[in-house]
């Protein structure tokens, strides 16, 4: 598999978009922009899935993240002193440490990626409908228990988060 293929170009493009929007998240002062930049980063990830022919996962990612990040945006507006970013305040700490950590993480990951021997590529992949069917059989077959525990975990998290977030009774009466 040599030479540039359309798949490589699209992967590189959407990969660059995902990374760029990811950087914008922490560079912009406006909180709503920051949440929506994360959304577009995740959407670019979903588009990468589509390029890699994982149609179901790509569409699912694009759909889920639109919701999640919009909810993120309203939480930003609720909890921030300056959601519009007009005051241009600095909201970072331990910058040097974080830069080093991020940089070391990046370099280590890149080293592993480029030094490892990944073996031969497998050219044939199942079609989109076949993939969805296979995934369904996997979910309700071999991995059913794991899937069920994931569902239960989400339910527990929902109940727990609601319990934590509900106002104490005396505060509610006011």
């Amino acid at each position: 598999m040599t030479g540039m293929t359309a798949q490589m170009i699209f992967l590189a493009f959407f990969g660059a978009a995902a990374v760029w929007f990811g950087i914008v998240v922490f560079r912009t002062k406006s909180m709503v922009r920051s949440a929506l930049a994360l959304l577009f980063s995740q959407t670019a990830v979903g588009l990468m899935f589509l390029v890699m022919q994982a149609e179901f996962l790509g569409v699912l990612q694009i759909m889920m993240m639109a919701t999640e990040m919009s909810v993120m945006a309203i939480f930003m507006v609720m909890f921030m002193m300056d959601p519009g970013g007009m005051g241009a305040m600095d909201m970072t700490h331990q910058k040097r440490l974080s830069l080093w950590a991020g940089g070391i993480g990046l370099v280590a990951a890149l080293a592993v990626i480029w030094l490892a021997a990944w073996g031969p590529a497998v050219p044939n992949i199942p079609g989109a409908a076949q993939q969805a069917a296979d995934l369904g059989r996997e979910l309700l077959g071999r991995s059913m228990f794991i899937f069920q525990s994931a569902g239960l975990t989400i339910l527990t998290a929902m109940v727990a988060a609601t319990m934590v977030a509900i106002a104490p009774r005396k505060e509610r009466k006011e």
């Binding site: 992967l11 590189a12 959407f14 990969g15 660059a16 995902a18 990374v19 990811g22 950087i23 998240v25 922490f26 980063s41 990830v45 990468m48 974080s98 830069l99 950590a101 991020g102 940089g103 993480g105 990046l106 990951a109 890149l110 990626i113």
Partner: peptide, 11 residues
């Protein structure tokens, strides 16, 4: 791309 996103997220 994944590694770069990981680094950014960690930062």
């Amino acid at each position: 791309a994944g590694a770069a996103m990981f680094g950014t997220g960690l930062y």
